[in-house]
Design a protein around this nucleic acid. Structure first.
Lengths: 252, 252
DNA sequence: CCTGTTCTTGCACGATGATGCATGTATCTT
DNA sequence: AAGATACATGCATCATCGTGCAAGAACAGG
């Protein structure tokens, strides 16, 4: 096994499971713990991981959070993402919001789909670099760390210069009365700006978000085209949304 | 067996299995390891593979996992990045170009350094999400896939609205007569736009870039403050640059 | 057909790098 | 406080690397 392979393995392990235990990896790869420790030391020196007693942790909890959440809670999100990805037609254009569900949508897009993707999330842009036929447009601005998206006045301004057929929006709360909500005012404004630039807006909401509300209102029900969720279609909250005129796309 | 056959075999192996171990191939084809090494060296010089201790890995992001590629940043790039990162003062602001060397700089920044980073690379933005005290500003625009950075008119326009003390620029060629060069015209324009917004511009150039030139001129020597390289300070080319008035910061 | 040139290949050798083990120290756990 | 575990360091060993060199193949020109 090449040294570079080992290092890649460690990084992959770090990203996937969120931690590396020197002893386990050594036993796993049949190499000495010293070598693993040396590798981890080197990676840490480059800022690719954080050394801790017994092993190493990822540099950024936020990023792992992403991957971990992606891996763990992903069942619902993946279903939602898969349905959402199918809304993107060949040659079509889509505005992709940030967040883990939207990231799952990016990953669910066929690798050789020819389409235009507009996003304010560097994470999603990075994920789509490998799609050779996808046209990518990045909306810049001040990056809001918590959710890793460009927000603020500059971003809203930049969003005014794009338009698309479809906007796929992630939110943290979906509630019959409160509407679509999220945890940050700037982010809410950004989502409104994005939605305004698309002919149709669909909201991505895995089942755990149904019936909950966050502090800041993003949009009222009238402004969106539909909701994509893996929640049971017979669920009471989902039923109420449907009576409000929301087109519910079931994902399962 | 023809030399061209060997090279084709190596590339095929690289694409299919994701790696080449010099020893194995030599035994397999009944040729000396020296020949394999020479082939790999040549392929690497043409940018067709990434040389590592013991063999080689593919260079294409499509084949290799992105994290793995980051781990493969050459020793020289790491040294250059480390020196460059030290130019960023607490409370300071820096414009970071795209590319693997710049990414190495981002990773080399202390995790709790309070500074402002402006970049047109979603990859670099993603890498810095985990730096809690770093203010991040993303320059948007059409994403140029090859180097994963925002380019084009919109990006140049967006760059006009930022400014910083320092600009760290990556290039593909550093040549006494040709100046600083890169492989794409849009990218060259973008780099000029970035450099114009900073008080000081330093160029990141690991030793393999010294003395080479690419099609498109980025900037003449007069426009930059200095060059950061791991090349031998006594190197002839480096010496000529110094006589042109370039401030050379040695990295080793 | 011969001869000189150039290119390729394999080998030798010294330099450098990587790895595992031993040892003493630091850190965690109980 | 004591035992256990993980760590850094120095060292011996082995693998890999680059370079110089010589033998042979390919080739051009006479």
């Amino acid at each position: 096994m090449l040294a570079a392979e080992r290092r890649a393995h460690l990084l992959e392990l770090l990203a996937r499971t969120g931690k590396v235990v020197a002893k386990d990896v050594a036993a796993d790869l049949r190499i000495s713990e010293d070598t693993v420790r040396r590798d981890l030391r080197d990676l840490a020196a480059e800022g690719l991981c954080q050394r801790v007693y017994g092993g190493a942790l990822p540099v950024s909890p936020a990023v792992v959070d992403y991957d971990a959440r992606q891996a763990l809670a992903s069942d619902g999100k993946r279903k939602v993402a898969s349905v959402a990805a199918r809304l993107v037609r060949p040659g079509g254009s889509v505005i992709l919001d940030g967040g883990t569900t939207a990231l799952a949508v990016a990953r669910a897009l066929p690798r050789d789909l020819a389409c235009t993707v507009i996003t304010h999330s560097p994470t999603i842009a990075t994920a789509l670099i490998g799609h050779p036929r996808a046209e990518l447009f990045l909306i810049g601005g001040r990056v809001f760390k918590h959710s890793a998206v460009a927000c603020g006045a500059a971003a809203v301004e930049a969003a005014r210069n794009v338009s698309a057929e479809l906007c796929l929006l992630g939110v943290t709360g979906v509630h019959p009365e409160a509407g679509l909500t999220t945890g940050d005012a700037d982010e809410a404004a950004m989502k409104r700006a994005l939605s305004a630039r698309a002919a149709d807006t669909y909201v991505l909401a895995s089942s755990e978000k149904i019936g909950t509300a966050s502090p800041y209102r993003v949009l009222p029900w009238e402004s969106i085209t539909g909701l994509i969720t893996d929640a049971d279609p017979r669920d009471a909250t989902v039923g109420r949304l449907r009576t409000l005129g929301v087109d519910v796309l079931a994902a399962d």
